[in-house]
Amino acid sequence: MNGKTEVSFTVNGEEQLLNVDNRTTLLDALREHLHLTGTKKGCDHGQCGACTVIVDGRRINACLTLAVMHEGDNVTTIEGLGVPGNLHPMQAAFVKHDGFQCGYCTPGQICSSVAVLEEIKANIPSHATSDLTQQAKISDIEIRERMSGNLCRCGAYSNILDAIVEVAEARP
């Protein structure tokens, strides 16, 4: 019985080749094998959103997917969005609006926020979308609904919302 599999995928623009135990989640591959510890392990059961990363343009819970299922995929983590001195606009907006307290959920919140604005642009509906036949629009209620998979136990939600709205309004 071979419990290991070779897999290659791109993380933040860099090609990675791993030979991992099949049980390794994408989250553990990022943190334990590639030492990208920006992505956080919260509940490890897909309930809190702290592990949110962007894979092939879509946000997912890295804890609920196996690394070996990502052959050829393109993964972006918080480290790939921006770095100190060259922050992604969403990272800068979270700092400006104080969109965190302890900061543990923040990488997941920011990855999710970036993807949420893309989802609205791509006209993907949400529970808060009033008319399915119209282009989805950015609004407080849309952003709150779409961010419901990211929990913040410090309760920084209103500042997180302010940060996302500012980036949304600044976009062309």
């Binding site: 997912i60 609920l64 949420v116 989802e119």
Partner: peptide, 26 residues
Amino acid sequence: ANETVRRDYGLLSRALVAGASGQLRN
């Protein structure tokens, strides 16, 4: 998000977005 589903089977689209989170639905 499928256009035909939204137009002709709106019930299905509504049920889907009522469930889980954006990350899970992806």
